[in-house]
């Protein structure tokens, strides 16, 4: 099996790893880098649970080949903390009950983070669009949208 050296910046730190051509990004993150916060849901690019950020844009790690992020900045839920404190989005999901069983939450937060970087003040509709690729089987989405809105408008400390 052909391998190549994958050099990337993962959650702010430069890494170099030998990865097989056929390795999926999610397998690299979970099994090579040991970052198990990224979840495998549908396993086919349909549910968004595995969403990570690649150069600030949301990417489905379960249908991305690892070598395609060479030279890029990759962020996972483990990289969301800032200065030892969970991020504003994470606090908002916590305060507004945007998370129930929690399985979709890493993907929801990374997709929301990508959305807020592109559009810091999204409307309700723009949040629905931005998260349309993420499935949650618990919340019914209302609390998730409230969470993102409150992170965006700064009402969460």
């Amino acid at each position: 099996m052909a391998k190549s050296i994958l050099s990337l910046v993962l959650n702010g730190r430069r890494r170099d790893d030998a990865v097989a051509d056929n390795m999926l990004l999610i397998d690299y993150l979970r099994e090579v880098a040991g970052l198990t916060g990224t979840k495998m849901g549908c396993d086919g690019g349909e549910c968004g649970a595995c969403t990570v950020l690649v150069d600030d844009r949301p990417r489905l790690s379960c249908i991305s080949l690892a070598y395609t992020v060479a030279g890029r900045r990759v962020e996972t839920i483990e990289g969301a903390r800032r200065g030892g404190r969970i991020s504003r989005l994470q606090r908002a999901f916590h305060e507004k009950l945007g998370s129930q069983c929690g399985y979709c939450t890493p993907g929801m937060i990374m997709a929301s983070e990508g959305l807020l970087r592109r559009n810091p003040t999204p409307s309700d509709d723009e949040i629905r669009q931005g998260l349309s690729g993420n499935i949650c089987r618990c919340t019914g989405y209302v609390k998730i949208i409230e969470s993102v809105l409150s992170a965006a408008d700064g009402s969460v400390p």
Binding site: G45, G48, T51, V54, R57, P58, R59, L60, S64, T68, A111, G114, L115, Q129, G130, S132, G133, N134
Partner: peptide, 8 residues
């Protein structure tokens, strides 16, 4: 698809 697919 969705935003995340359209990036690639």
């Amino acid at each position: 698809a969705a935003t995340s697919h359209r990036q690639v």
